[in-house]
Amino acid sequence: MPGHGFRPVFHPAGHDHALRHALQDLRAGRWGEMARLLEETAATGHWDGWTRRTQVLATVAAGTDVVHAWRAEQPDSAAAAVMHGRVAVERAVRAHRAGHAGGRALEQEAWTACREAIERVPADPVPWIGLLALTALGARRPGAPHRVRPPAPMLPPGPWGLLAEAQRRDPYNREAYHRMLQFVYARSDGPLSEAVNYAQWAASGAPRGSALHVLPLYVRVERYRRDRGHEHALDLHWVAEDAVREAGRAMEDWFLFCAVPEASQLDLNHLAHALFGALRFPDAARVFEALGPYYTTAPWAHRTPRPADRTLAEEVFLRARARCLAD
């Protein structure tokens, strides 16, 4: 129930308390807990947790020299090599978004770091995911590399070989498919028909319990952001027949089968948002309950007149949560 005084919490670790502890150590300039966490994660043999944790750690480590210090202390560490690639990619992506003059040099550094990680740990999908992320930065450059024929009609040419390498190591890796989606977005500012086709293709081939069933919900939010603006909190975009169908499939083919504590907060927020928009309030309530105190600004920010204002995004989240949990 929507308790009085409930305040949502934004934290990249979410329910992952071990990751939270490692992030605290990392922010203090230490790498020991990160190394221990990744050693334990690698021992499980589950690439989904490895991918998620290395990605979150890199978002914090990219603003520090901690991974550099770790590699200096443990030059033979495979995990440190992977994190070096992660951090290099994160810095290149940030520089590209900010339009920094040195962005191309950072891209090359990241490319080299990922290739070195591939040589060090050939079975790891994460360095291949890093290469996928870098292709989106040059998606519109003439003669961009890694443009190959797509695996199905209605899909654009692109770095499908890189996606296949990640898929070979970890079938249906969530981040790999999201990185490919970012490439598709980057090809054009126009209609998102290619992205729609891609998300439907990815979801249709994914097994039950796969987070790829949430991909169409991301594309629907992006379509709204690009084409419809932010004038109305609820409009026909969210209750159209295909929108309701996409929300239902994500609920039935992913949420009901996934390990919720290990699920992406972004995926859970996109699903809660889609079910709320589709007026499926009881189903949305189950997702809000699974989220607990945690939330992400996206996609809620895109229902506000000022998406950069996190306070407005939080207000929309709280209203939606209260409405759904009131039933």
Rank of each mutant, 00 (worst) to 15 (best):
A62D: 05
V89D: 03
S204F: 05
P122Y: 01
R179D: 11
G102A: 05
A117V: 04
Q108D: 06
P145Q: 10
P282L: 03
A62S: 10
Q24C: 04
A285W: 03
G102D: 15
A62Q: 13
A326V: 06
S210W: 02
R245A: 12
L23T: 06
P75W: 12
Y172S: 06
Q265S: 06
E165V: 00
V239M: 08
P12K: 11
A211T: 07
G277H: 08
A22Y: 01
P122F: 04
A78D: 07
P150N: 04
R53G: 00
M154W: 13
L325T: 09
D309S: 06
L275K: 01
T135F: 00
N269M: 06
R97N: 08
Q24R: 13
P8G: 05
G158D: 09
G209V: 05
C258A: 15
A28D: 12
A117W: 11
A58R: 04
A186M: 05
A206M: 11
L162A: 03
L134E: 04
A240I: 01
L325M: 15
A152P: 02
P216F: 13
Y172V: 04
L57D: 00
V67T: 12
L268K: 04
G45N: 08
E252N: 11
A35R: 15
S193Q: 12
E252L: 12
L162Y: 07
R71A: 03
A233G: 11
L215I: 13
A98C: 01
A58L: 00
R226K: 14
G143M: 10
R223Q: 15
P307E: 07
D327V: 14
Y198C: 00
F317E: 09
V219Y: 03
T311V: 13
V126L: 00
D227N: 08
A78R: 10
L212Y: 10
G102V: 13
T311Y: 05
M1W: 10
R226G: 03
P293L: 07
G99A: 06
G205Q: 14
F10G: 05
H237D: 05
R286F: 00
G3T: 06
A79N: 12
A79E: 15
E109H: 06
A95M: 09
A95K: 03
H11E: 13
A72D: 10
A88W: 04
A272T: 02
R86A: 15
G102K: 02
H17Y: 05
R321F: 04
L312K: 12
P8V: 12
P122Q: 06
E165I: 02
L23G: 06
R149A: 15
A62I: 02
R179W: 15
A42S: 12
R226C: 00
E315K: 10
E33H: 12
G161N: 11
P122T: 10
W128E: 02
F281A: 08
H84Q: 15
A313K: 09
R179M: 13
A278L: 01
R303P: 07
A240H: 14
G158W: 08
A199L: 09
L137N: 01
N197M: 03
D235R: 07
D235H: 13
D227A: 12
I129G: 00
P159N: 07
G49K: 05
R323W: 12
A285F: 01
G130H: 06
A81M: 14
M251L: 14
R141E: 14
S210E: 10
E194R: 04
A202I: 06
A105T: 14
A80F: 14
D65L: 07
G158M: 08
V121L: 02
